[in-house]
Amino acid sequence: MADLHPVVQPLLSRSPLDDGFDPPGSQANSTAPGVTIRLVRDRSATLIASGPRSAAALERRLHEALGIALPGPGRCSQKDGIRVLWQGPARWLVLAGAESGTEERLRAIVGRDAAVIDQSGALVSLHLEGSRVRAALSKILPIDLHPRVFARDDTRSTAAGHIGIQIVCVEDTPCYLLLIPRSTAPDFARWLIASSAEFGVGVE
């Protein structure tokens, strides 16, 4: 009887931006785009949250194991393809490659000093660059992205309209990484494309 049933298929990972990300009409002006948007597919996101009593121990353990110092407010640090973002008092988000088993590895490192929570599916990552990317983002984010106040390895949690997002300055060129709640990613992407369109927008 059991044999009559289909074998369970491997589950496929899917981004909410798999469909409908290509902006209608934007190809026309994308030969020299002022804004280039790339969906970052292969990355994990893991939250480390600790209590006040164990933050110091956590910091030591992570530094020993990964060689990364936990960044302070508004900052991030990185090493060997792992990027750690400050997210709040005693909370950090660790971004790494998708296949690295980061959650298990981190859990082994932090032991009982912190909660380790997978957020890979919760966040959609967009990589933004181009000469006009700041102008495009000024239509979406209420924060100052001028390099005098938001430079490489700075990060902010902020509000894009009704959507809470986190932004990282990857390079001063400028080049940014945006983390967007999965459920709102299609609407956010449409807004981003509309805001970028006048500068020419390329989507990778």
Partner: peptide, 19 residues
């Protein structure tokens, strides 16, 4: 109102299985 008009009046949250 800016961009927040019509279908973009407010962001809609879509379930992972929406497609």
């Amino acid at each position: 109102a800016g961009h927040a008009r019509g279908m973009d009046f407010h962001p809609r949250r879509l379930s992972p299985a929406h497609p």
